[in-house]
Computed example of a mutant assay.
Amino acid sequence: MDARTIIGWNLRRLRVERGLSQERLALATGIDRAYVGRVERGSENVTIATLEAMATSLSVPVATLLIEPEADAPKPVPLRAGRKQGP
């Protein structure tokens, strides 16, 4: 797995675990939502500054975004579409 794919994999996994949409992560990070999507698909070369901003928004160390997933790890699933239900 190449570095861009690993970063995209981890970004999506962490974002979904936290219940964040791409748009919410983009707003928190100060980047464009479409850029977040391209990073998750592994089609964007991200800078260290952008990695740091995304990691900060996700409350993880930057190194977490660079950890290669296990070969048999299930692909991160997308968030369910639609608005979240209120409490």
Rank of each mutant, 00 (worst) to 15 (best):
L65I: 05
D72I: 14
L66F: 15
L11R: 10
T5N: 07
A28Y: 08
T56N: 09
R4E: 11
Q22K: 00
L11G: 11
I67Q: 15
A63Q: 10
V39K: 00
S57W: 03
A63T: 15
L79F: 05
V62D: 10
A26L: 01
N45H: 15
L79G: 05
I67R: 15
A81Y: 03
T47K: 06
N10I: 07
A71T: 12
R80T: 13
R83G: 15
V60I: 06
V77K: 13
G42E: 06
L27Y: 02
S57N: 06
S59C: 09
A73K: 11
Q85N: 10
V39A: 04
L20W: 01
W9H: 03
P78N: 14
A49K: 13
L11F: 11
T64Q: 12
R38D: 11
D32M: 05
P69Q: 13
R15Q: 02
V60P: 00
V77M: 09
G8E: 09
G30H: 04
I48R: 06
R83K: 15
L58Q: 02
L51V: 09
I6V: 11
M54F: 07
A71R: 09
I7H: 00
G86D: 03
D2Y: 07
V46E: 04
Q85L: 13
T64E: 10
R13W: 05
A53K: 14
R15V: 01
G42D: 06
R80N: 13
V60D: 01
R18P: 00
L11T: 14
I7L: 04
R18F: 01
V46A: 09
R4G: 03
M54D: 08
M1R: 12
S43Q: 15
E23W: 00
A53L: 07
E40I: 02
E52Q: 15
S21L: 01
A71S: 10
P69I: 13
I48E: 07
V39Q: 02
